[in-house]
């Protein structure tokens, strides 16, 4: 097993190299980079005094290219980037002039808060709900909750978000209209801080949960129903176990196997965030950072986030695999 893990770990840098190389090349080869963006901003900005509209000289253009790090051929630039990465340096944002690391770390509390809370709520609610639904399939609880779940699932989360915002934050005024915390957060007592955080997070959390909620609940429900019909369940009952005992001791563990296959991906929640939800609720998270970086052609940020999320994704895969092997002894490492 250790040899397997070692092999998988060795593959990670290679995969990362491949992914980043492709994206790096794309950022250079696709028309409309940071230089064009800067040119457009000036040239389309109209004839304000102090700004010349005559074409830039070659020298000036190459000066700007140097500023935006476009002066070298892309393979060379990629080489420099990789060397920096190996020293733990993600580079610096071209537009904010802040180190990408600092920008990532500044957003960690937000993504960790929403990611962990959403994860705990998802598993904490969906697993029991899925079990209840599976034990009495087609009962009122199963049918009722399925309607709710599918209704939520069918609504795109930003549509739901707009609705929640207008009704619960605007009309009813139960919740604040966005933001991660209040402006006076620092001055609050500990309990008030927690209260403030919860108050701000309920609506966005609803949006974050609504998608995975349906997925996890139905995954648990359906696999459990499948497991309940399995032969070993009958064996367990024939042994003298009650139905409930059989479900808890035998059915559930088997039903959790598919959940384990992507549990490791929870690692990526460190960098998670939806740009739509973050836009709607004015949360300064990774979704917005990544989306804006692409619009801004701020490639150091794009590459930095890509690198980190690919790394987490690959590690998450490995963890998923190990976890799967742990819950399902039939899985072998080759």
């Amino acid at each position: 097993m250790w040899a397997y893990i070692a092999r998988r770990l060795l593959l990670i840098p290679l995969t990362l190299l491949g992914i980043t190389l492709i994206v790096f090349a794309l950022t250079r080869l696709v028309p409309g980079g940071p230089l064009e963006r800067a040119l457009m901003e000036i040239q389309m900005g109209g004839h304000s005094k102090g700004v010349s509209t005559s074409p830039l000289s070659e020298e000036q253009l190459s000066g700007l290219k140097t500023y935006y790090g476009l002066d070298q051929p892309w393979p060379v630039a990629y080489g420099h980037w990789i060397l920096k990465i190996m020293q733990g340096d993600l580079g610096e944002s071209q537009r904010y002039n802040d180190p990408v690391w600092d920008m990532v770390i500044a957003r960690l509390p937000i993504s960790l808060f929403y990611g962990l809370t959403a994860m705990i709520l998802t598993y904490g609610i969906c697993v029991p709900l899925g079990i209840l639904k599976a034990m009495k399939p087609h009962g009122w609880l199963d049918k009722g909750s399925s309607i709710m779940i599918f209704l939520g699932y069918a609504l795109p989360n930003y549509v739901l978000g707009s609705f929640l915002l207008v009704v619960f934050a605007g009309y009813l005024d139960w919740f604040p209209l966005g933001g991660f915390i209040s402006d006076d957060f620092e001055t609050l007592t500990f309990w008030k801080k927690i209260q403030d955080l919860i108050h701000h997070s309920i609506l966005p959390l609803c949006c974050y949960l609504v998608g995975s909620f349906a997925f996890v609940t139905l995954l648990i429900r359906n696999t459990l129903i499948e497991q309940l019909a399995a032969d070993f369940m009958r064996t367990a009952i024939a042994k003298g176990l009650s139905f409930k005992q059989a479900v808890w001791r035998h059915g559930l563990r088997n039903a959790l196997v598919p959940l384990a296959t992507d549990f490791g991906q929870n690692l990526t929640l460190v960098l998670s965030g939806s740009f739509l939800i973050e836009t709607l609720f004015d949360i300064d998270g990774f979704g917005l950072l990544g989306y804006n970086a692409i619009l801004d052609r701020d490639y150091p940020i794009v590459m930095g986030i890509l690198f980190l999320s690919a790394l987490l994704f690959l590690l998450g895969n490995l963890i998923s695999d190990l976890l799967l092997a742990w819950v399902d002894p039939r899985v072998r490492f080759q």
């Binding site: 070993f232 064996t235 367990a236 035998h250």
Partner: peptide, 9 residues
């Protein structure tokens, strides 16, 4: 094959 629980010893 199937009458035994596959994930238990």
């Amino acid at each position: 094959m199937t009458a035994l629980n596959p994930v238990m010893t």
